[in-house]
């Protein structure tokens, strides 16, 4: 507050500038307005800070809890330790981290291939239904997940009784479900980059003698690769964190981490959960930062 006043005084005090209004007359008004503005700004920053804290609170709190020394949660923590990280990185949790990683990795790769193909087709070959088709491919993002989950469960159960193909509780069964919900993210990311890529570079490549296939691999693919990498990271973390579909389909033999945590919590709750959660939080925050570096998150979200 005082700094602003000083600044104003300085400007007014120099007084040599004939364009400036007469100092004595304008100063009170400026100060009052400045005070009000400053108050509004500080108030605004506090409000924004509080809201952002609300959003970030669970992620931060879970990290705090993970350093507890006791075998139950207390607040505040009196004795800190890293022993729960040992617990998080062994036994069932490690198994599930492993399961989730495999699931996320394979579904992200598949989503990238399928999603990039779809995004390219939908953006480069426009026809009367392509807008509708784009919406169709993005639909899994905008429907209550539980509905999709129960439908998928019934579908694969029926599939088993009719064809003998068993997808329930298996990696392929989970994989298909996850590709279904991660592909839209890849389509969106790649589309965003495709829209920014000058189509003329493809024409240029063709005018220089590159066949359409060659053009795609030599020019288009490198140009949209940030989008594909971004889509991959997105697909990975979406799959890694998916809950509803995994809950319906998975079985104890192959249980993704969120489901393991959920089931663990129904039995007991100790800082082991917090430790494994903290690992996920740190990992996701890093991945988010990477995507932002790669393509700029604002373009996709």
């Amino acid at each position: 507050m005082s700094t602003v006043e000083i600044d104003r005084n300085k400007v007014g005090g120099q007084g040599n500038n004939p364009d400036l209004p007469v100092n004595g007359r304008t100063r009170p008004a400026i100060t009052a307005a400045g005070l009000l503005q400053l108050a509004a700004r500080i108030g605004g920053q506090v409000v924004v800070g509080l809201i952002v804290f609300l959003i970030a609170f669970p992620s931060l709190f879970v990290i705090y809890l993970s350093f507890s020394e006791k075998s139950f949660f207390t607040f505040p923590i009196t004795a800190f330790s890293l022993k729960w990280y040992q617990n998080a990185l062994s036994g069932q949790f490690l198994e599930s981290i492993f399961a989730s990683s495999i699931l996320a990795l394979t579904s992200a790769i598949m989503a990238c291939v399928i999603g990039t193909m779809c995004a390219y087709a939908l953006n480069r070959y426009r026809f009367w239904g392509s807008g509708l088709l784009t919406n169709f491919f993005l639909a899994p993002l905008a429907l209550p997940q539980i509905v999709l989950a129960i439908g998928y469960l019934i579908l694969i159960t029926r599939l088993r009784s009719f064809t003998g193909v068993n997808l329930t509780g298996t990696l392929p069964g989970l994989l298909i479900a996850h590709v279904l919900v991660t592909t839209p993210w890849v389509i969106r990311t790649v589309s965003a980059v495709l829209l920014q890529t000058d189509r003329a570079i493809e024409d240029a490549a063709q005018s220089l003698g590159a066949s359409p296939r060659r053009t795609f691999f030599a020019v288009t693919l490198p140009a949209i690769s940030p989008g594909i990498v971004g889509g991959f990271v997105f697909a990975f973390i979406i799959s890694f964190g998916n809950f509803e579909l995994s809950l319906m389909v998975s079985q104890p033999s192959f249980e993704p981490l969120p489901i393991r945590i959920y089931h663990y919590l129904t039995e007991k709750s100790d800082p082991g959960v917090a430790a494994v959660s903290a690992l996920v939080v740190v990992f996701v925050a890093m991945a988010t930062w990477i995507i932002d570096r790669l393509i700029g998150l604002q373009k996709i979200l």
């Binding site: 000058d198 240029a204 020019v219």
Partner: peptide, 8 residues
């Protein structure tokens, strides 16, 4: 091309 269309 108008926008140069250089391969970035």
């Amino acid at each position: 091309f108008q926008n140069y269309a250089l391969f970035p």
